[in-house]
Design a protein around this nucleic acid. Structure first.
Lengths: 196, 196
DNA sequence: GTCTATATTGCGATAGAC
DNA sequence: GTCTATCGCAATATAGAC
């Protein structure tokens, strides 16, 4: 097995395990057994269990960098929010473990929270807040709305929908085929809620 | 120490510890040391660490039973949702650990999830869904909105606001004095989003 | 009902052979 | 780079004295 294979397979195997059981819920023995590598490989390649977890988190939260892209298309603020909603739904489809790390670190933070998670989320919130301010300045959005409160409400609608999936499996259709309806639905409520 | 003192102090001490570190992040040694009781008391009173955790969860999620009360005041659907928003904010103020158990169990479920958490959340969602259907029937809400999707969006706005507090501490004022503004703000967006 | 002492298992990490 | 063997410690749980 080449150098990178072992490193890569450990991250690939650790991602769903850490996501579903939490950092303390997975042992290094379980990790190496699932990965089919030797017990000592985690220390050899990463320096320990916590460093492997940090590597997984770094990879996961790097995908949030795409959010900045919604500013690079010359749309109006409302169009940017629509892109944000759609790209967030897409991101959770492509990356089914991201939200778990997201909420797990918010709820039971590890040392990686301050270093990796908090800055990544903060960056997204500030981008969305700036877009909303832009919409107020151009007269598109109601100026009496607090920008941060409002974009938190928008982010909450989307994220909570996916977070509650273990409860709503029998109550709503979670098939990806329905994503576009969901996007339209959320955009509909948000638009009526914030435009002048 | 009388019987109930020991039981009660263990639950009182275990609640913040489990909430902040997760089930696997707390050891029975840490629990009994913080509680000032003997190591064997957890097994004696609860039968083990997991049973103590289940007792904490049961107490926490019992507070969600209040949600049914919003139906007992003869308000119109919109008034019921306003009561839901306000009572949810109040509940998180009075019970600062509930949301952590909520998201922790959704993200990294323990055996208690199916038994305690899922039924409690499900009950709340069905109550809210029924209220929204009632609002559609009376012509107050737009009939093209999917009731479950819509009330998930509402619940998401509220819950996500509190969930993100560790990130937004420096970005928004989380003082309870501002709660009424938050309630008004969320109600404002929701109302414009769903009324005919 | 509360204590000490201990049984048993599992943990993360690493030394040293190959 | 990968292996086995093991160190040192922490985990939950309980037996048995008081």
């Amino acid at each position: 097995m080449s150098d990178n294979d072992c490193r890569a397979i450990l991250i690939a195997v650790a991602t769903p395990l850490f996501a579903e059981k939490g950092f303390h819920g997975v042992s290094v023995r379980e990790l190496v057994k699932s990965a089919g590598v030797n017990l000592s490989m985690i220390s050899y390649y990463f320096g320990g269990k916590e460093a492997l977890y940090a590597a997984v988190l770094t990879e996961q939260f790097a995908t949030l960098g795409q959010v900045a892209d919604i500013n690079s298309l010359g749309m109006d603020p409302l169009g940017k929010f629509q892109r944000y909603i759609r790209s967030t739904v897409d991101r959770y489809r492509k990356n089914p473990y991201l939200l778990r790390f997201y909420t797990s670190e918010l709820t039971n933070p590890t040392p990686s929270f301050e270093l990796i998670v908090k800055p990544a989320i903060r960056r997204v919130l500030l981008i969305l807040q700036e877009i909303f301010r832009e919409g107020i300045a151009t007269g598109q959005f109601r100026q009496e709305l607090d920008p941060m409160d409002t974009i938190l409400a928008l982010a909450g609608m989307i994220n909570f929908y996916f977070l509650l999936e273990p409860v709503t499996q029998e109550l709503v259709n979670h098939a990806p085929q329905r994503d576009e309806i969901l996007v339209t639905h959320l955009m509909d409520i948000f638009t009526r809620g914030v435009v002048v």
